[in-house]
């Protein structure tokens, strides 16, 4: 059956979406022009924000090119997991991809608008090891969570009944039993790590925008080596944006806990619930069949009221049927309890 939509485009909503993208840039540009003497600070901040926005727009552009024009169905669709909810692991992978990509765009802007001239010809994508590890960790976490979810859905078909068609932001922090501490701590560590990383991006680019070509060539390969034993001569020069290794390890542990928790308890509990539900449903079906057979046997037109044997037999059949009804009711009660638990979670 075909359906036609009579809804008109929401122009006000589109206006606000556009404003959401442009207003921060206007505010930053005004601040830059209205606060003389702090150009470097505001220029670096402006570059940072523009590069972040540019990266997001790039993602949106990709979704537009591939035919999904609506904002929520477009970029935000990247965040929806296999159960139809917003996924923290996907959000994290998405954010890290944006942050690391935007740091490269920020570098490009710094070279393009360098105060000594256009140095873009010296640009080479350079990443610190910690940045690559962070991106790798978040993508691994995303793939692992996807694997766990798909496996759980395969083993517990009833979980498909709880598939959500309208994701909410609350999904990111809510687990099967309410607010999830492992998700919450991972989100906070991620936000903190992003702030630290962005501060390094700012620090690096606020220098790159001023330096000459030879100086840039030196700092473009200046990698932070936490455990280097040699004395660092130019200690005040920035490094290629990085995070301390201890932070990377912390992120790894945080993600390990998140994935591990998702894997172990929910997997076993869901499996158990599904198996129990199937077992109970089979029992109900079998007992219902037996009740039908006994009812059919009892419904005998040749039953003789004068026969003592028939009277005893009928009484026994009636009792069996009553007992079966009670058993079926008890099992249905258990099935409802499991269903209620599944829906509530």
């Amino acid at each position: 059956m075909m359906t036609t939509s009579t809804q008109k485009p929401n122009r006000l909503s589109l206006f606000w979406k556009a404003a959401f993208l442009v207003i921060p840039l206007i505010v930053l540009a005004l601040l830059y022009t209205q606060v003389p003497g702090t150009e470097t600070f505001w220029l670096a901040i402006l570059q940072l924000v523009i590069s972040l926005w540019f990266t997001i727009l790039l993602f949106m552009g990709v979704t537009v090119i591939f035919g999904v024009t609506d904002f929520k169905k477009g970029v935000l669709n990247f965040l929806i997991g296999d159960t139809g909810t917003y996924s923290l692991s996907r959000l994290q992978a998405f954010i890290w991809a944006i942050v690391i990509m935007s740091s490269q765009f920020c570098l490009i802007f710094s070279l393009l608008f360098n105060h000594t001239g256009n140095l873009f010809r010296y640009y080479e994508p350079t990443f610190s090891q910690s940045a690559m590890w962070l991106l790798g960790l978040s993508l691994t976490s995303y793939v692992a969570v996807k694997g766990v979810t798909v496996n759980a859905l395969t083993k517990n078909q009833n979980a498909l009944n709880t598939y959500k068609t309208t994701p909410k932001w609350g999904d990111i922090l809510v687990g099967p039993n309410g607010l999830d501490f492992s998700k919450c701590q991972m989100l906070i560590w991620t936000l903190l790590a992003i702030c630290v990383f962005e501060s390094k991006v700012y620090d690096y680019n606020s220098l790159v925008i001023h330096v000459s070509a030879p100086e840039y060539m030196k700092i473009s390969v200046r990698m932070y080596e936490e455990y280097k034993s040699t004395v660092e001569a130019a200690w005040n020069l920035p490094y290629v944006p990085y995070l301390p290794w201890s932070f990377v390890v912390l992120m790894g542990l945080s993600q390990g806990v998140y994935v591990g928790k998702k894997l172990v308890p929910s997997f076993k509990l869901d499996d158990l619930k599904a198996a129990k539900q199937t077992e109970l449903e089979n029992s109900t079906a079998q007992l219902t069949l037996k009740k039908q057979y006994l009812s059919s046997i009892l419904d005998n037109p040749n039953f003789s009221k004068d026969s003592p044997v028939d009277k005893i037999s009928a009484a026994a059949l009636n009792k069996q049927i009553t007992d079966l009804q009670q058993q079926i009711a008890d099992i249905n009660g258990d099935i409802n309890t499991i269903n209620t638990y599944n829906k509530a979670n």
Partner: peptide, 26 residues
Amino acid sequence: YKNVTDLQTLLETKNWTNSLSLMDPA
């Protein structure tokens, strides 16, 4: 249970008179 009900159904088609079955406790 299915054996008994199916047999009674079969016998009915062949004009048998099925007396009330004796099941389990009976």
